[in-house]
Design a protein around this nucleic acid. Structure first.
Lengths: 97, 97
DNA sequence: TAAATTGTTCAATAGTCATAGAACTATTAT
DNA sequence: ATAATAGTTCTATGACTATTGAACAATTTA
């Protein structure tokens, strides 16, 4: 059961595009693409020069758009791109970044 | 000389994504894709159920993001998709729409 | 248990966006 | 010239967005 099933396809597309329409969030995505090792919220926020609460806000936006996946381990949350969403709605986009 | 040369690549991406992050504008793009004949502003606005001024606002947003091209003939403005921009920044996206 | 670490939520704020209607511009038709 | 047609711009308004710092919650470490 994913969020896509509850809203129209275009509503979901709008949510995805809003999520991508921000320079910090583009930087987060680029950071996730460029790292070999798994990164946690703090590390990503640091590399993107975002405050703690601001980074958290951006992660929520990306997660609610289905663009990232989060894995919790103790206090730490590890984040990765949700490639399925990119493949479905924006095939080829990540390669342009 | 295009607008892209004056702003960073990410700034331009943000502009594109903001332009796409609206249901009316997605509908405009879909309308432009689906029509065999060239359409003018009024026809598109009608099909997308947007008021005259609202449609004009959306056309400006799309044009400033480089997503449409406008050809003026007398009082009438004919609009088409600017495929080059889609190909460069969102390859494959139009096919998902 | 107390302190440190990691991240979320809340409240306030400033800025941006979508919309409508009225006034305006440019062009064509009568 | 006047009226009609096709779009744009202006003004106002309500809704949403990004940001910050403080308070909070969950987990691990000393």
């Amino acid at each position: 059961m994913t969020i896509e099933q509850f809203i129209s396809s275009d509503e979901y597309r709008v949510r995805i595009f809003k999520a991508l329409a921000d320079p910090t969030r583009l930087q987060i995505i680029r950071t996730l693409m460029g790292s070999r090792t798994e990164l946690n919220c703090g590390e990503i926020g640091e590399r993107c020069e975002a405050s703690k609460s601001n980074a958290s806000y951006h992660f929520r936006t990306l997660r609610e758009a289905g663009l990232i996946l989060v894995r919790k381990e103790a206090q730490t949350k590890y984040i990765q791109l949700h490639h399925k969403t990119f493949d479905t709605y924006l095939p080829g986009f990540l390669d342009t970044l």
